[in-house]
Simulated scan of single mutants.
Amino acid sequence: MPHLSRRTFLRAASATALGSVMFGVGACSTAPRRVSPSNAEDPLMIGYVPIACASPLLIAEAAGVFKRHGLSVALKKYAGWSDLWSAYSTGELNIAHMLSPMPVAIDSGVTNGQRPTELSFTQNTNGQAITLATEHHPRVQSATDMRGMVLGIPFEYSVHALLLRDYLVSGGVDPVADVELRLLRPADMVAQLEVGGIDGFIGPEPFNQRALQSGAGRIFLPTRQLWDKHPCCSVAMAKDWRSFHPDSADRLLSALHEAAGIVNDPARHEETAQLLSHEKYLNQPVALLAPALAGHYRNWDDEEVTDPEMMSFGDPTDPTAITWMAAQIARWDLSSGTSLPLDDAAIIAAATSVLPAGSPPTGRPVKINGEVFDPAHPTRTYTL
């Protein structure tokens, strides 16, 4: 496995999307408003990005689950993660759909948008894929064959970006020098694939399904084949908001768990897809959403596959996974090596800080891209 020096990565990163995202967050670094007790009748404003990973949150609203739990909720849609990050870090939002590495980054202060944050609920595990342009089929057979490609990622602080980097390194590919990782909103990934702007992307549903059905792309690898049961998206809360509203927070989490049960139910996939398809939510055709929920796709070997474990919702938050994400943020210097150094104690503390009260502080080792990651020694595999 090749090892990149910290200096090499930082020099290269200045010319990549990392620079732009750090600038974008820093430019919106107004100190967050202090949360105070609010009227119990005020709706809870929750921000989200329209991808299938957010299904429990969206179904909780669409199917009336929030109301059954005595909550008034207003959902606010954001086109991409940078906009949602800015809204949350400045206090416009106190609760948000986030990619699971985002609470770690925000809570640890790895950018100027620091805010004490709890990763309260894991919305989905698995459910992502590396999708490549059809022109690369069937030539590409491993990470080695991806040298020279331009690959889309949805956000630097995403399991997509972190897992893709680790996958490339495991195949002997330098994710800085050998490929270009380009930040794209999920909705723009397929469009860029269709016009040849990128060679592929690692992204959520229903955009892998859209690439398949349009003919622009083929699913190369579901990410569960890189790391089974990896978390992707979460619902995060500002710690100060939660301290002022413990009852509302508990009701919200109970509603999300109930909604996750609805989304997981195969007998309700068609109904769920119909609800999610509405413009207010995902604004995507049922013909894309239903197979995504069912785990149906055509694989790289031209086989029709139905995998019930392709995407799961509402699984318990895994402390090992959160520790791995913190380790990757440090490994790739996404904190500039200041607030989150490549140090076991610092990484474990950063992961533990975002876990809900009562969560186990550590988890069991797990195999990711063929390597065993031990959360008790998170830097052991990553010598930069």
Results as ranks from 00 to 15, higher is better:
2 P>H: 04
9 F>P: 06
9 F>R: 14
14 S>G: 14
18 L>Y: 13
19 G>V: 12
22 M>Q: 13
25 V>K: 08
31 A>P: 02
31 A>W: 00
34 R>Y: 05
34 R>N: 02
36 S>H: 05
38 S>F: 11
40 A>I: 10
42 D>F: 10
54 A>K: 01
57 L>G: 01
59 I>T: 02
60 A>P: 03
60 A>F: 02
69 H>Q: 12
70 G>L: 12
71 L>H: 09
75 L>T: 02
76 K>M: 07
76 K>Y: 08
78 Y>E: 06
83 D>V: 11
85 W>V: 13
88 Y>L: 15
89 S>A: 15
89 S>W: 04
92 E>I: 00
97 H>V: 06
97 H>Q: 11
98 M>K: 08
101 P>G: 13
113 G>I: 12
114 Q>H: 06
115 R>Y: 07
117 T>Y: 02
119 L>R: 01
120 S>A: 14
132 L>A: 09
133 A>C: 11
135 E>P: 07
137 H>E: 09
137 H>D: 07
144 T>C: 08
145 D>I: 06
146 M>F: 04
151 L>D: 13
161 A>N: 14
166 D>N: 02
169 V>E: 03
170 S>P: 00
178 D>H: 10
179 V>D: 10
181 L>A: 04
182 R>V: 11
186 P>M: 03
191 A>W: 07
195 V>K: 08
197 G>N: 07
199 D>W: 10
199 D>V: 12
202 I>L: 15
203 G>P: 04
203 G>I: 04
203 G>C: 08
213 Q>S: 10
213 Q>G: 06
215 G>H: 11
218 R>K: 15
220 F>K: 15
221 L>D: 10
224 R>D: 04
226 L>R: 03
226 L>D: 03
229 K>F: 09
231 P>T: 03
233 C>P: 06
235 V>Y: 09
240 D>V: 03
241 W>F: 01
242 R>H: 12
243 S>G: 08
245 H>L: 08
249 A>M: 02
251 R>A: 05
252 L>R: 03
253 L>E: 01
254 S>P: 01
254 S>N: 04
255 A>R: 02
256 L>S: 01
257 H>E: 05
259 A>K: 01
267 A>N: 07
267 A>M: 05
270 E>N: 11
275 L>F: 15
275 L>Y: 14
277 S>A: 06
282 L>N: 00
283 N>H: 03
284 Q>P: 02
292 A>C: 06
296 H>D: 13
303 E>D: 07
305 V>K: 03
306 T>Q: 14
310 M>Y: 11
320 T>F: 14
323 T>F: 11
327 A>H: 05
330 A>S: 10
333 D>I: 07
333 D>N: 15
339 S>G: 07
340 L>H: 06
351 A>G: 14
355 L>Y: 06
358 G>K: 06
358 G>D: 15
359 S>R: 00
364 R>N: 09
371 E>N: 03
375 P>L: 10
382 Y>P: 02
382 Y>A: 04
384 L>G: 13
384 L>I: 10
384 L>H: 13
